[in-house]
């Protein structure tokens, strides 16, 4: 993942609170491999009617070139599906501005280069009211922690580590692999001092093809009353 410091694009308002990840991408689309592109699935059931026709008045249908989404509290709540972030990114969204985000969603966003920018909720109220159904020039500056929305400039909040991660395009796996020896030492110590923490019964096996009613199933020793 490559890092970024500034973004310049266009913003639309999505005047709905509690947009959960089931809205961002309905479950039925999630068996698709990522390379197919998740953009068409973004907010699918809000953007389309039951016959699959696009709702012409939905903000992202009116302004399909928008890259900044201004919305209400608790955006990305619910399911941990990272596919919600893929749908936003593949549609072209780079920044979501809201008073609050679902915790797992926000972490997923940062892991994929999407900025979850927090602003106070009264500020969101005013800006959403002002934006209405227009699409305006908008941008984000990660190092200055500033957003621009038409003629406004305003600060946003983000965990400093996350801001750095977005700017550097850090990949956690690479970071962690620098600590491989430390991890191995921790694991060994744990095996010595906390032997019970390592499952006794766990043996690598795929039992898909070995259905039996005995063995390690709970059939023989289940449910202490």
């Amino acid at each position: 993942m490559s890092g970024w410091r500034t973004h310049a694009g266009h913003a639309v308002a999505l005047d709905i609170e509690n947009i959960d990840t089931d809205q961002l991408i309905p479950a039925r689309f999630m068996s698709t491999p990522r390379r197919a592109g998740y953009g068409p699935f973004l907010l699918h059931d809000l953007r389309h009617d039951a016959q699959g026709q696009a709702q012409p008045n939905f903000p992202l249908n009116r302004h399909p070139g928008a890259s900044v989404l201004l919305t209400r509290r608790n955006f990305g709540s619910g399911s941990s599906r990272e596919a919600a972030v893929y749908a936003l990114l593949d549609f072209g969204i780079r920044v979501v501005i809201a008073p609050s985000f679902g915790d797992i969603f926000a972490a997923n966003a940062v892991n994929n280069g999407l900025l979850p920018a927090r602003i106070p909720s009264d500020r969101a109220d005013t800006l959403i009211g002002e934006l209405g159904d227009r699409c305006v020039a908008a941008g984000a500056d990660l190092s200055a922690r500033k957003l621009t929305l038409s003629q406004h400039t305003l600060p946003f909040e983000i965990d400093p580590v996350w801001a750095e991660k977005l700017m550097m395009g850090w990949d956690d796996i690479d970071l962690t692999r620098a600590h491989t020896a430390e991890i191995a030492a921790f694991q060994q110590k744990r095996r010595q001092h906390l032997a019970w923490a390592f499952p006794q019964g766990a043996r690598p096996q795929d039992t898909d093809t070995q259905a039996t009613s005995q063995g390690t199933g709970v059939g023989d020793r289940r449910f202490n009353p």
Partner: peptide, 14 residues
């Protein structure tokens, strides 16, 4: 299976 992970699959009593 590829990674040697124990699995409670569709036919497993667990």
């Amino acid at each position: 299976e590829r990674h040697g992970i124990a699995c409670f699959g569709p036919a497993d009593p667990r």
